[in-house]
């Protein structure tokens, strides 16, 4: 199994993904990893059983361009990552607003503690 992962810049992501789509690659999924100062987002593609993997490092607090305009199936994966890691995706085809799996009253992103969710609501309740 291939474990090679090619690191690219965030600005080059959509062009790279579009190129892979044009070459006939299929989107397998995306993965995300939490680090102290950044997230790593991995994009996994496949063609004739061979994988191609891209890695983009994203500083915390920045948003990420959505690939759901190129691969519609990406919308579900990006919503899941948004729930778990709090990463915002711009141009998301169908945006569940952080509530794909989590309820409104969940206060932290499960995979990291980069912030408090629904801060306005928390203050209201605390008050």
């Amino acid at each position: 199994m291939a474990t090679e992962i090619i690191t690219i810049e965030k600005s080059a992501l959509l062009d790279e993904v579009q190129t892979l789509k044009n070459k006939g690659y299929r989107l397998v999924t995306m993965s995300s990893v939490n680090f102290d100062e950044r997230f790593d987002l991995l994009y996994h593609f496949d063609k004739e059983l061979r994988m191609k993997n891209l890695r983009v490092s994203l500083p915390k607090g920045e948003s990420m361009p959505s690939i759901s305009g190129i691969y519609l199936a990406g919308f579900l994966i990006e919503n899941e990552i948004k729930d778990g890691f709090g990463i915002d995706f711009t141009g998301l085809a169908i945006d569940f607003g952080g509530n794909l799996m989590l309820e409104d009253d969940v206060q932290k992103y499960p995979f990291c503690s980069v912030g408090v969710k629904k801060s306005a609501k928390v203050k209201k309740e605390d008050a």
């Binding site: 999924t29 993965s31 991995l42 996994h44 199936a73």
Partner: peptide, 23 residues
């Protein structure tokens, strides 16, 4: 698909699982 990341500890840094129904 499993993506597993580890850094030499007994705990894994990440165990990402993409199941077929999700796809």
């Amino acid at each position: 698909m499993y993506y597993i990341k580890a850094s030499g500890n007994k705990f894994l840094d990440r165990c990402r699982i993409r199941t077929p129904t999700f796809a």
